[in-house]
């Protein structure tokens, strides 16, 4: 896995999206912010991202559907990307487990701050590059 550099943030809440973009950009990452599910899925498959931050409650296409399209039914359209699910919605257990099994992390947005997110991204980076 390459070091994390390019990040796609699929987030419909402008305030939250801008917040992550600001903090991640300051930390040296290149961030594309996309606010709709459909556009997000297109971007994820058209461009090579090292990390995808995926919201669940999105317009047009839900995060669960995007994750399924990218990594459902045994396929993996983004083998070189890591996916972090970021949500504030308290999903039922089955849906949560299903997402966790396909993603590299599952976080409650209200529980983490941008600085904490950075720590998590760094630890993801160490884990995956360390495993090579």
């Amino acid at each position: 896995m390459p070091h994390i550099k390019q990040i796609l943030c699929i987030e419909d809440d402008l305030f939250i999206g801008e917040m992550y973009r600001r903090s991640l950009t300051k930390a040296g990452f290149a961030v594309d912010l996309i606010a709709s599910g459909d556009e997000g899925l297109k971007a994820a498959t058209n461009k090579q991202y090292d990390l995808i931050l995926l919201d669940v409650m999105l317009p047009e296409k839900k995060g669960t559907e995007i994750l399924h399209a990218l990594r459902g039914e045994g396929k993996d359209l983004v083998p070189n990307s890591r996916i972090l699910v970021l949500t504030n919605y308290d999903q039922d257990d089955e849906s949560k487990m299903a997402m966790q099994s396909k993603a590299d992390g599952y976080l409650i947005k209200a529980d983490i701050t941008p600085r904490r997110l950075l720590e998590i991204i760094y630890s993801l980076d160490v884990q995956s590059t360390g495993a090579e």
């Binding site: 939250i16 992550y20 600001r22 504030n88 947005k109 209200a110 701050t113 941008p114």
Partner: peptide, 10 residues
């Protein structure tokens, strides 16, 4: 809350 916590953090 995410926004408040996040922006305060920033």
């Amino acid at each position: 809350i995410t926004v408040i916590r996040g922006y305060l953090d920033l």
